[in-house]
Design a protein around this nucleic acid. Structure first.
Lengths: 209, 209
DNA sequence: TAGATTGTTAATCGATTAACAATC
DNA sequence: TAGATTGTTAATCGATTAACAATC
């Protein structure tokens, strides 16, 4: 379905979700069309940047008119892969893991939580939002049986690489990583990191300037 | 104490916590000195980039020797402001707020949780790690009384801007924002965002390439 | 001293912005 | 049609990498 899109920079890709979010806001306000100039004003980007970014993926606008809000949002949603469903597990069912399990933005992006895993016997057996916490030794079988595409690592730093190894061994190709550790995985496995403490340190830095 | 450091790009600043983390790992392994070449190999950066980055802040190395791991880590810690303490509150005491309250990386960066606030009467009065959840109407007085420097917003998108307005009104100058919303605040207020769903959408994108 | 490695300047690369012909 | 605004090429800006003299 998708054409091959070579050489799109991560800078562009990381702006796509912001476009998607703002287009959703515009839709809620009942705005049906928008020019790159006005869209840029709202988002704090230049009109040029918006047109350049969008034209990496196709000509979604119309001269003299601008962009159709609803259509553009759908296009970007498809580019981001939000039209698909991703069967997901959480590894590490502590506070953060449980918070993520309850996180609503999660389902909105097409990620469906199928199971949670931990090594702590006190957590195993408990359910969070009707999703069971299982022993991590059952993980490999579960991944195969339930067709899991994505794993979320919410373990402490110490366990993270070991968990990643097990996930790779079980055939997982995409990891959302909350552990403060750069995971070592084969080239064909995608890792997207959320480094909370790094974000916090940047805040501390900015407070001292 | 600090000299004025103009024009240091955010690209450089966002790499500092990673340097800090890797230097901590090296220390734990008992490594006392490192060259930019070897450090670059470990981190996946060029040696040039490391030397350029560090020289934004001062000449921490020594020709023919490299960098002293412990000293460099301390220097970067000071640059990041990790030698200070920041009195912090969490606004929004749902799952995410509670997970953040329990987050250990938090205290490691010098952030001390002093209070939590919510509008939900069922949560008000509960304590998380000996920190009380209070009514949001008590927030302004608490901020003044307890000398709060930083607020963490863990509310849903809808409440976030209103909370930000109250925080600004109460004199808060630094916000760590987890709500999926770009906050409108005066220029002298620092906002560091953690956009979870944007990170997740990037993961979805990468899975479809 | 000779070798290693920094600090720093210069060159390259990539990303952003400006400009404008095409066209709705 | 005239006005608006795109898609796209060219110019600018900033960030990364390479090179090398200084020096430990």
């Amino acid at each position: 379905m998708d054409r091959i899109r070579p050489n799109i920079s991560m800078a562009v890709i990381r702006r796509l979700p912001k476009y998607y979010r703002y287009l959703g806001d515009l839709m809620e306000k009942g705005i049906t069309r928008i020019s790159s100039k006005e869209f840029g004003r709202i988002m704090g980007f230049t009109a040029s940047q918006i047109r350049q970014d969008l034209n990496c993926f196709g000509g979604f606008g119309q001269q003299g008119y601008g962009y159709n809000v609803k259509e553009l949002r759908e296009e970007i949603g498809n580019i981001l892969g939000l039209n698909r469903r991703y069967n997901t597990i959480i590894v590490g069912a502590g506070n953060l893991g449980q918070a993520i399990a309850n996180y609503s933005g999660f389902a909105e992006a097409g990620f469906i939580l199928k199971g949670m895993f931990d090594i702590n016997p006190r957590l195993i057996g408990i359910s969070i939002r009707a999703v069971k916490i299982m022993d991590i030794d059952e993980m490999k079988g579960f991944i195969a049986r339930e067709n899991i595409n994505v794993a979320i690592i919410c373990t402490p730093k110490e366990g993270a690489q070991d968990v990643a190894n097990r996930l790779v061994d079980a055939g997982i190709k995409a990891i959302w990583n909350f552990a403060p550790e750069d995971l070592n995985v084969p080239d064909d496995v995608i890792v997207e990191n959320v480094y909370l403490s790094e974000s916090l340190m940047v805040l501390a830095y900015l407070m001292n300037q």
